[in-house]
């Protein structure tokens, strides 16, 4: 009689433990979903690429040879890479004009700051002889704010400079 009762008690305990375990597992899944980190955005943005394309069409105050042969940031990048010390007709250094122009454009186009949605940006322009990404000589690098987060959008544009290409990329960090 006592043995029978003991067996029944054990069965009850096993059942209870099984239910508790089941509920605990489901609760853990439940908690995992609710505490899940916001999904990181890491993708190419057409908007950023369009921005870069439009930036490359901007007419700078730098003229080569004669006025009004004012050049675009594209031409400045090319000259800054090929002839680093080259100057514009107004005696300003090509690389400096490129730096100031791009900085002005980036700061006016994207509101960057702690209170803003965009926490930082990073702009890079590189020359590479082959199409392999990540390799190449840096022409200009600009950055502002905090761009270490894993949520960002990128865009890039490129143009040919024989025998390679100049690739400009912009990363906006959220």
């Amino acid at each position: 009689m006592v043995n029978n009762k003991k067996n029944k008690g054990q069965e009850e305990i096993v059942g209870f433990v099984a239910i508790v375990l089941l509920v605990a597992v489901v609760a853990l899944i439940f908690l995992g979903i609710s505490l899940r980190k916001p999904v990181d955005i890491q993708k190419e943005s057409k908007d950023v690429s369009r921005f870069l394309e439009s930036t490359m069409l901007y007419t700078t105050d730098c003229a080569f040879g004669y006025e009004p042969n004012y050049v675009t940031p594209k031409d400045l990048m090319k000259e800054c890479y090929l002839n680093k010390g080259k100057k514009c007709l107004n005696d300003e250094e090509v690389c400096l004009v490129l730096n100031d122009t791009l900085k002005g454009i980036l700061d006016n186009s994207w509101k960057v700051g702690e209170d803003s949605a965009i926490k930082g940006y990073s702009f890079n322009s590189t020359y590479s002889r082959n199409s392999t990404k990540g390799e190449g000589e840096s022409i200009i690098s600009l950055g502002k704010g905090n761009c270490t987060s894993s949520s960002f959008v990128t865009g890039e544009t490129f143009f040919a400079v024989y025998p390679g290409t100049i690739t400009s990329s912009l990363k906006l960090c959220y």
């Binding site: 369009r50 930036t55 009004p68 675009t72 006016n108 186009s109």
Partner: peptide
């Protein structure tokens, strides 16, 4: 984003594009 271009009449005249 687009490039906004206009005809400038200074010097010999040229097309100037802004962002």
């Amino acid at each position: 984003f687009v490039a906004l271009c206009r005809q400038e009449f200074k010097q010999q005249g040229y097309v100037k594009c802004d962002l």
